[in-house]
């Protein structure tokens, strides 16, 4: 366990430098906040609620969803690059479990992202947009738990997409595909309750809503009481299933390396 923590810490140090990418990311995030704010202001100009959601709750939902979406990515990109340049074979010889190593790296960058990226953004958002806070401490705890599980579901899924690099050349295209699926089906753009019925039903059977929609709905009060615990149950189901899938597919991929040499 300790060596994985060291790996995570190493990555945190690498990310501490305020690089050009950090500023670019911050500027982009602020712009997205602006677009979200003005867009929803305009949408609510002629009505006070949509599907019983008022502007304040809606903005809270969208902003929290946007911030949370920043965490549902993972190490898929790094893994895909490692596969492409043959690094995987070298990594496999090292004395650690490569999956855990990648996750440790991921945890490292996410902690830095939380400190450098998310916290300033949360302050800006709450200062300028008067978003609402959860009503009870129970909700806060449930949200924290749910968000954490959602992030790991996203990480596992991202890993699965990264592994595809063993079989496809156009890694970039696959990533765009994955991003679009998540953006849309996770409820990062709009609460899933607004979807037409047929689409909502499809969405309920996919893992994506467990990444963003469920935690954010708990936060903004769209899901309460026993429903919230049910949501956690669904998330746990996906968490376990995806992890099993990660292990199974990784075993297959390693066979591919050891037999065909990558």
């Amino acid at each position: 366990m300790r060596k994985y923590w060291q790996i995570a810490k190493g990555r945190m140090q690498e990310n501490t430098a305020y690089s050009a990418w950090y500023w670019a990311g911050t500027v982009s995030a602020v712009m997205r906040l602006l677009i979200i704010y003005f867009f929803w202001q305009a949408v609510y100009a002629n009505q006070t609620t949509i599907q019983n959601i008022n502007l304040e709750t809606m903005l809270t939902y969208i902003v929290i969803a946007m911030l949370l979406q920043g965490f549902v990515g993972g190490v898929g990109n790094e893994l895909a690059e490692n596969i492409k340049d043959g690094q995987v074979a070298i990594q496999l010889m090292r004395p650690y479990d490569m999956i855990f190593k990648l996750f440790a790296v991921d945890v490292g960058s996410k902690i830095m992202y939380l400190i450098q990226g998310t916290i300033p953004m949360v302050l800006i958002a709450y200062f300028f947009m008067d978003l609402s806070f959860p009503k009870s401490p129970e909700t806060i705890i449930l949200f924290a738990l749910s968000a954490l599980i959602g992030i790991w579901i996203g990480t596992f899924f991202d890993f699965l997409v990264g592994v595809l690099a063993f079989w496809t050349v156009n890694v970039w295209g696959v990533r765009v595909l994955k991003e679009s699926l998540i953006t849309f089906f996770s409820g990062a753009l709009v609460p899933i309750t607004l979807f037409p019925d047929w689409l909502r039903i499809i969405t309920e059977f996919l893992p994506f809503q467990a990444m963003v929609y469920l935690p954010v709905s708990i936060y903004s009060g769209l899901i309460t009481g026993t429903e919230a615990y049910m949501a956690l149950g669904i998330q746990l189901f996906w968490l376990v299933s995806l992890y099993v899938l990660v292990r199974v597919i990784w075993t297959q991929a390693i066979k591919q390396i050891t037999i065909f040499g990558g």
Binding site: T168, N170, G173, V174, L177, S180, L181
Partner: peptide
């Protein structure tokens, strides 16, 4: 894959 993924991105 490239063409399809960009179309899906826009479609979303």
């Amino acid at each position: 894959i490239g063409v399809f993924s960009v179309m899906l991105e826009q479609f979303a």
